[in-house]
């Protein structure tokens, strides 16, 4: 089963819409509550990163009987140093974005903690592709 959603950069009011849809779908498929929680946290953070750091992006969700794979691909500045970006507390978010409570530098760490496999590919000046896999029966 596959679904996709578009994300507009800069539009914080819509951040979380894809996560909300995916939550409903996984619930309908009777995926366990604990797995749904992890997938939703990871996807929400990926969505917010597109809104906060990129120009636009697309979410693709692929659900199989044993796992869900979420791919979030954006057009944006890319991440020059991925290990540095993965460090808890590291953030390049603007002061305005921080004031809203974003930009704590906990997004990528949250994504790592809440998925079984996290892969980030990024090209500076082009964009970033985040792939997260979560198994239903860990």
């Amino acid at each position: 089963m596959e679904f996709s959603y578009h994300i507009e950069g800069g539009d914080f009011s819509k951040a979380g819409l894809a996560s909300s849809e995916v939550k409903k779908i996984l619930k309908q498929l009777n995926v366990s509550a604990s797995v749904i929680k992890r997938v939703v946290v990871a996807l929400y953070e990926a969505e917010v990163n597109v809104v906060a750091h990129a120009y636009e992006g697309d979410v693709r969700v692929d659900i199989a009987p044993e796992r869900v794979v979420v791919v979030v691909e954006d057009r944006g500045p890319g991440i020059p140093d991925i290990p540095l970006a993965m460090q808890e507390g590291y953030s390049t978010a603007s002061a305005a974005v921080r004031e809203m409570g974003f930009g704590a530098g906990m997004g990528l760490p949250n994504m790592r903690k809440n998925s079984d496999e996290l892969n980030i590919e990024s090209e500076v000046g082009k964009g970033t592709k985040v792939t997260m896999l979560t198994r239903f029966n860990p």
Binding site: A104, G105, M106
Partner: peptide, 9 residues
């Protein structure tokens, strides 16, 4: 908390 990622996590 006022940090959204902290609440999310």
């Amino acid at each position: 908390s006022d940090l959204l990622s902290d609440v999310m996590g």
